[in-house]
Protein backbone atom coordinates (compact mmCIF):
# COMPACT_ATOMS: atom_id res chain seq x y z
CA UNK A 1 0.00 0.00 0.00
CA UNK A 2 1.19 3.50 -0.85
CA UNK A 3 1.43 6.42 1.56
CA UNK A 4 -1.28 8.64 0.16
CA UNK A 5 -2.05 12.15 1.34
CA UNK A 6 -5.61 13.49 1.37
CA UNK A 7 -5.96 17.26 1.51
CA UNK A 8 -9.30 18.05 3.10
CA UNK A 9 -10.10 21.30 4.87
CA UNK A 10 -13.48 22.52 6.04
CA UNK A 11 -12.52 26.10 5.23
CA UNK A 12 -12.91 25.30 1.53
CA UNK A 13 -16.61 25.20 2.29
CA UNK A 14 -16.57 28.91 3.13
CA UNK A 15 -16.32 29.79 -0.55
CA UNK A 16 -20.06 30.26 -1.06
CA UNK A 17 -21.32 30.33 -4.64
CA UNK A 18 -24.94 30.94 -3.63
CA UNK A 19 -28.04 29.02 -4.63
CA UNK A 20 -28.36 27.25 -8.02
CA UNK A 21 -24.64 27.15 -8.71
CA UNK A 22 -23.19 23.75 -9.65
CA UNK A 23 -19.82 24.34 -7.97
CA UNK A 24 -20.98 23.96 -4.37
CA UNK A 25 -19.38 22.95 -1.11
CA UNK A 26 -21.59 19.84 -1.12
CA UNK A 27 -19.18 18.46 -3.70
CA UNK A 28 -16.38 18.26 -1.13
CA UNK A 29 -18.70 16.63 1.39
CA UNK A 30 -19.69 14.06 -1.25
CA UNK A 31 -16.01 13.40 -1.96
CA UNK A 32 -15.30 12.93 1.76
CA UNK A 33 -18.30 10.63 2.22
CA UNK A 34 -17.17 8.50 -0.70
CA UNK A 35 -13.66 8.09 0.66
CA UNK A 36 -15.00 7.34 4.15
CA UNK A 37 -17.45 4.83 2.72
CA UNK A 38 -14.56 2.91 1.16
CA UNK A 39 -13.15 2.43 4.68
CA UNK A 40 -9.77 3.83 3.68
CA UNK A 41 -9.63 7.05 5.72
CA UNK A 42 -7.42 5.43 8.36
CA UNK A 43 -4.82 4.55 5.72
CA UNK A 44 -4.57 8.11 4.44
CA UNK A 45 -2.34 10.92 5.65
CA UNK A 46 -4.85 13.67 6.35
CA UNK A 47 -3.58 17.11 5.37
CA UNK A 48 -5.19 20.39 6.37
CA UNK A 49 -4.37 23.59 4.58
CA UNK A 50 -2.16 26.48 5.50
CA UNK A 51 -2.45 29.81 3.71
CA UNK A 52 -0.22 30.12 0.64
CA UNK A 53 2.55 32.68 0.58
CA UNK A 54 1.58 35.38 -1.94
CA UNK A 55 4.92 35.02 -3.72
CA UNK A 56 3.97 31.58 -5.02
CA UNK A 57 0.67 32.83 -6.42
CA UNK A 58 2.61 35.61 -8.13
CA UNK A 59 4.67 33.03 -10.02
CA UNK A 60 1.57 32.64 -12.20
CA UNK A 61 -0.82 35.53 -11.57
CA UNK A 62 -0.50 39.22 -12.25
CA UNK A 63 -0.24 41.17 -8.93
CA UNK A 64 -2.89 43.62 -10.15
CA UNK A 65 -5.28 40.72 -10.76
CA UNK A 66 -4.66 39.32 -7.27
CA UNK A 67 -5.40 42.71 -5.73
CA UNK A 68 -8.53 43.08 -7.84
CA UNK A 69 -9.70 39.66 -6.63
CA UNK A 70 -9.13 40.58 -2.99
CA UNK A 71 -10.93 43.91 -3.34
CA UNK A 72 -13.97 42.48 -5.06
CA UNK A 73 -14.38 39.75 -2.42
CA UNK A 74 -14.04 42.19 0.46
CA UNK A 75 -16.41 44.69 -1.15
CA UNK A 76 -19.25 42.18 -0.96
CA UNK A 77 -19.76 41.69 -4.71
CA UNK A 78 -21.16 38.31 -5.62
CA UNK A 79 -19.49 37.77 -8.98
CA UNK A 80 -15.98 38.37 -10.31
CA UNK A 81 -15.05 38.98 -13.98
CA UNK A 82 -18.04 36.98 -15.27
CA UNK A 83 -21.53 36.08 -13.96
CA UNK A 84 -20.36 32.40 -13.87
CA UNK A 85 -17.85 33.22 -11.15
CA UNK A 86 -19.95 33.52 -8.00
CA UNK A 87 -18.03 34.64 -4.94
CA UNK A 88 -18.49 35.47 -1.27
CA UNK A 89 -16.44 37.41 1.28
CA UNK A 90 -14.42 34.26 2.04
CA UNK A 91 -13.63 33.25 -1.53
CA UNK A 92 -10.28 35.04 -1.54
CA UNK A 93 -9.17 33.25 1.65
CA UNK A 94 -10.45 29.88 0.40
CA UNK A 95 -8.46 30.36 -2.80
CA UNK A 96 -5.30 31.07 -0.77
CA UNK A 97 -5.98 27.98 1.33
CA UNK A 98 -6.51 25.86 -1.77
CA UNK A 99 -3.10 26.82 -3.12
CA UNK A 100 -1.46 26.64 0.33
CA UNK A 101 -2.86 23.16 1.02
CA UNK A 102 -1.56 21.83 -2.28
CA UNK A 103 1.91 23.35 -1.74
CA UNK A 104 2.02 21.74 1.74
CA UNK A 105 1.13 18.47 0.05
CA UNK A 106 3.99 18.92 -2.40
CA UNK A 107 6.39 19.47 0.53
CA UNK A 108 5.23 16.22 2.15
CA UNK A 109 5.80 14.32 -1.07
CA UNK A 110 9.16 15.89 -1.82
CA UNK A 111 10.41 15.14 1.72
CA UNK A 112 9.28 11.54 1.29
CA UNK A 113 6.57 11.64 3.95
CA UNK A 114 3.97 10.54 1.42
CA UNK A 115 4.15 8.93 -2.02
CA UNK A 116 1.24 10.63 -3.74
CA UNK A 117 -1.88 12.60 -2.87
CA UNK A 118 -5.40 13.71 -3.67
CA UNK A 119 -6.13 17.39 -3.02
CA UNK A 120 -9.87 17.95 -2.66
CA UNK A 121 -9.85 21.73 -2.99
CA UNK A 122 -12.25 24.50 -3.86
CA UNK A 123 -12.31 26.78 -5.73
CA UNK A 124 -11.04 24.83 -8.76
CA UNK A 125 -8.31 26.34 -10.91
CA UNK A 126 -7.67 25.17 -14.46
CA UNK A 127 -9.73 27.86 -16.25
CA UNK A 128 -8.06 30.74 -14.39
CA UNK A 129 -5.85 32.82 -16.66
CA UNK A 130 -2.95 34.80 -15.28
CA UNK A 131 -5.07 37.95 -15.15
CA UNK A 132 -8.67 36.73 -15.45
CA UNK A 133 -11.11 34.58 -13.49
CA UNK A 134 -13.02 32.12 -15.64
CA UNK A 135 -15.27 29.07 -15.31
CA UNK A 136 -15.58 29.10 -11.48
CA UNK A 137 -11.76 29.37 -11.17
CA UNK A 138 -9.73 32.20 -9.55
CA UNK A 139 -6.18 30.97 -8.93
CA UNK A 140 -4.76 28.36 -11.24
CA UNK A 141 -3.90 25.86 -8.50
CA UNK A 142 -2.16 23.33 -10.72
CA UNK A 143 -0.09 25.91 -12.61
CA UNK A 144 1.15 27.42 -9.34
CA UNK A 145 1.98 23.90 -8.13
CA UNK A 146 4.07 23.21 -11.23
CA UNK A 147 5.99 26.46 -10.75
CA UNK A 148 6.50 25.66 -7.04
CA UNK A 149 7.90 22.22 -7.88
CA UNK A 150 10.33 23.84 -10.27
CA UNK A 151 11.37 26.83 -8.17
CA UNK A 152 11.37 25.36 -4.67
CA UNK A 153 12.23 21.74 -5.36
CA UNK A 154 14.35 22.02 -8.51
CA UNK A 155 12.11 19.73 -10.54
CA UNK A 156 12.81 20.34 -14.21
CA UNK A 157 10.05 18.53 -16.04
CA UNK A 158 6.44 18.49 -14.86
CA UNK A 159 3.58 16.83 -16.74
CA UNK A 160 0.04 18.08 -16.20
CA UNK A 161 -2.69 15.64 -17.19
CA UNK A 162 -6.13 17.28 -17.30
CA UNK A 163 -9.04 14.85 -17.35
CA UNK A 164 -11.75 17.42 -16.57
CA UNK A 165 -14.36 17.38 -19.34
CA UNK A 166 -13.64 21.06 -20.06
CA UNK A 167 -10.39 22.26 -21.56
CA UNK A 168 -8.01 23.86 -19.05
CA UNK A 169 -7.50 27.04 -21.03
CA UNK A 170 -5.69 28.80 -18.19
CA UNK A 171 -3.17 26.02 -17.66
CA UNK A 172 -2.53 25.68 -21.38
CA UNK A 173 -2.01 29.40 -21.89
CA UNK A 174 0.30 29.72 -18.87
CA UNK A 175 2.62 26.98 -20.17
CA UNK A 176 2.13 27.03 -23.93
CA UNK A 177 5.54 28.63 -24.56
CA UNK A 178 7.28 26.48 -21.97
CA UNK A 179 8.97 23.18 -22.85
CA UNK A 180 9.53 22.29 -19.18
CA UNK A 181 5.82 21.70 -18.49
CA UNK A 182 3.94 19.29 -20.72
CA UNK A 183 0.19 19.92 -20.76
CA UNK A 184 -2.19 17.18 -21.87
CA UNK A 185 -5.96 17.56 -21.84
CA UNK A 186 -8.79 15.26 -22.86
CA UNK A 187 -12.12 17.09 -23.11
CA UNK A 188 -15.38 17.65 -24.96
CA UNK A 189 -14.88 19.24 -28.38
CA UNK A 190 -14.58 23.03 -28.03
CA UNK A 191 -17.18 23.73 -30.72
CA UNK A 192 -19.79 22.37 -28.31
CA UNK A 193 -18.46 22.91 -24.81
CA UNK A 194 -16.98 25.58 -22.58
CA UNK A 195 -14.55 27.31 -22.87
CA UNK A 196 -14.23 26.93 -26.65
CA UNK A 197 -10.47 26.36 -26.64
CA UNK A 198 -8.28 23.25 -26.72
CA UNK A 199 -8.55 22.35 -30.38
CA UNK A 200 -6.26 19.60 -31.61
CA UNK A 201 -4.17 22.07 -33.62
CA UNK A 202 -3.24 23.92 -30.42
CA UNK A 203 0.12 22.28 -29.74
CA UNK A 204 2.10 24.98 -27.95
CA UNK A 205 3.91 28.00 -29.32
CA UNK A 206 7.51 29.22 -29.73
CA UNK A 207 9.82 27.23 -27.43
CA UNK A 208 6.84 25.25 -26.11
CA UNK A 209 5.82 23.94 -29.54
CA UNK A 210 5.02 20.25 -29.17
CA UNK A 211 4.56 20.44 -25.38
CA UNK A 212 0.77 20.89 -25.42
CA UNK A 213 -1.52 18.09 -26.53
CA UNK A 214 -5.30 18.15 -26.74
CA UNK A 215 -7.49 15.07 -27.29
CA UNK A 216 -11.05 15.84 -28.32
CA UNK A 217 -14.16 13.85 -27.55
CA UNK A 218 -17.44 14.47 -29.38
CA UNK A 219 -20.79 14.78 -27.57
CA UNK A 220 -22.27 11.36 -26.86
CA UNK A 221 -18.93 9.58 -26.99
CA UNK A 222 -17.55 7.79 -23.95
CA UNK A 223 -15.40 4.89 -22.81
CA UNK A 224 -14.29 3.54 -26.21
CA UNK A 225 -12.97 6.89 -27.35
CA UNK A 226 -11.32 7.55 -23.97
CA UNK A 227 -9.53 4.18 -24.08
CA UNK A 228 -8.32 4.96 -27.59
CA UNK A 229 -7.16 8.53 -26.89
CA UNK A 230 -5.51 7.83 -23.54
CA UNK A 231 -3.55 4.94 -25.08
CA UNK A 232 -2.91 6.61 -28.41
CA UNK A 233 -2.26 10.22 -27.37
CA UNK A 234 -1.48 10.47 -23.65
CA UNK A 235 0.72 7.41 -23.10
CA UNK A 236 3.19 8.00 -25.95
CA UNK A 237 3.39 11.72 -25.08
CA UNK A 238 4.24 11.06 -21.43
CA UNK A 239 6.66 8.26 -22.33
CA UNK A 240 8.46 10.67 -24.63
CA UNK A 241 8.45 13.60 -22.18
CA UNK A 242 9.62 11.54 -19.16
CA UNK A 243 8.32 13.84 -16.40
CA UNK A 244 9.82 13.97 -12.91
CA UNK A 245 6.42 14.64 -11.34
CA UNK A 246 2.89 14.18 -12.69
CA UNK A 247 0.11 16.55 -11.67
CA UNK A 248 -3.46 15.63 -12.49
CA UNK A 249 -6.31 18.11 -13.00
CA UNK A 250 -8.99 15.72 -11.83
CA UNK A 251 -12.47 16.56 -13.04
CA UNK A 252 -15.20 13.95 -12.72
CA UNK A 253 -17.60 15.81 -15.02
CA UNK A 254 -17.09 13.57 -18.05
CA UNK A 255 -19.16 10.97 -16.18
CA UNK A 256 -22.30 9.90 -18.02
CA UNK A 257 -24.48 11.02 -15.10
CA UNK A 258 -22.91 14.47 -14.85
CA UNK A 259 -25.20 17.03 -16.47
CA UNK A 260 -22.41 19.53 -17.12
CA UNK A 261 -21.31 17.71 -20.26
CA UNK A 262 -22.56 15.49 -23.07
CA UNK A 263 -19.74 12.97 -22.54
CA UNK A 264 -20.60 9.46 -21.38
CA UNK A 265 -17.68 8.04 -19.41
CA UNK A 266 -18.41 5.21 -16.97
CA UNK A 267 -17.17 4.90 -13.39
CA UNK A 268 -15.01 1.93 -14.50
CA UNK A 269 -13.37 4.00 -17.23
CA UNK A 270 -12.50 6.72 -14.70
CA UNK A 271 -10.75 4.08 -12.59
CA UNK A 272 -8.92 2.72 -15.62
CA UNK A 273 -7.80 6.21 -16.56
CA UNK A 274 -6.39 6.93 -13.10
CA UNK A 275 -4.70 3.52 -12.95
CA UNK A 276 -3.09 4.27 -16.31
CA UNK A 277 -1.82 7.61 -15.01
CA UNK A 278 -0.43 5.89 -11.88
CA UNK A 279 1.35 3.32 -14.07
CA UNK A 280 2.92 6.18 -16.03
CA UNK A 281 3.92 7.77 -12.72
CA UNK A 282 5.58 4.53 -11.58
CA UNK A 283 7.45 4.21 -14.84
CA UNK A 284 8.79 7.76 -15.00
CA UNK A 285 8.76 9.46 -11.62
CA UNK A 286 8.76 6.94 -8.75
CA UNK A 287 5.00 7.25 -8.47
CA UNK A 288 5.11 10.96 -7.65
CA UNK A 289 1.59 11.91 -8.64
CA UNK A 290 -0.53 14.68 -7.14
CA UNK A 291 -4.17 14.80 -8.12
CA UNK A 292 -5.97 18.12 -7.73
CA UNK A 293 -9.75 18.42 -7.88
CA UNK A 294 -11.25 20.54 -10.64
CA UNK A 295 -14.87 19.87 -11.75
CA UNK A 296 -17.35 17.07 -11.19
CA UNK A 297 -20.86 18.11 -10.26
CA UNK A 298 -22.98 14.99 -9.84
CA UNK A 299 -23.46 14.73 -6.09
CA UNK A 300 -24.80 11.19 -6.63
CA UNK A 301 -21.68 10.00 -8.47
CA UNK A 302 -18.92 11.96 -6.74
CA UNK A 303 -18.70 9.60 -3.72
CA UNK A 304 -17.98 6.48 -5.78
CA UNK A 305 -15.72 8.33 -8.21
CA UNK A 306 -13.63 9.93 -5.45
CA UNK A 307 -13.57 6.70 -3.42
CA UNK A 308 -12.25 4.72 -6.39
CA UNK A 309 -9.79 7.48 -7.27
CA UNK A 310 -8.17 7.47 -3.82
CA UNK A 311 -8.14 3.64 -3.66
CA UNK A 312 -6.10 3.65 -6.86
CA UNK A 313 -3.66 6.19 -5.36
CA UNK A 314 -3.36 3.95 -2.28
CA UNK A 315 -2.80 0.95 -4.56
CA UNK A 316 -5.07 -1.02 -2.26
Amino acid sequence: MKRTGYLHDNRYILHDTGPHHPETSDRLLAVYEGIKEEGILEHLTMISASRADLKWIETVHDPVYIRRFEEICLSGHNTFDDPDNCISMDTYESAFLAVGGILDTVDLMMTDKIDNAFCAVRPPGHHAEKDKAMGFCYFNNIAITARYLQEKWGIEKVAIIDIDVHHGNGTQHIFEQDASVFYYSIHEHPSFAYPGTGRDFEVGTLGGHGFTKNSLVLPGQGDDVYYMLIQGDLMPAINKFEPEVILVSTGFDAHRDDEMSDIKVSTQCFSWMMQTIMDLGERHCDGRVISILEGGYSLQRLPELAGNHVKILLDS
Binding site: H20, H21, P22, D82, P83, D84, H127, M134, G135, F136, H166, Y194, P195, E259, M260, Y297
Partner: peptide, 10 residues
Protein backbone atom coordinates in the same frame (compact mmCIF):
# COMPACT_ATOMS: atom_id res chain seq x y z
CA UNK B 1 -24.05 31.24 -24.55
CA UNK B 2 -21.16 32.95 -22.80
CA UNK B 3 -21.20 30.65 -19.77
CA UNK B 4 -19.96 27.35 -18.46
CA UNK B 5 -23.18 26.85 -16.54
CA UNK B 6 -25.96 25.61 -18.80
CA UNK B 7 -27.51 22.89 -16.64
CA UNK B 8 -30.38 24.97 -15.29
CA UNK B 9 -31.11 26.84 -18.49
CA UNK B 10 -31.25 23.56 -20.43
Amino acid sequence: LLTNNVVRVK
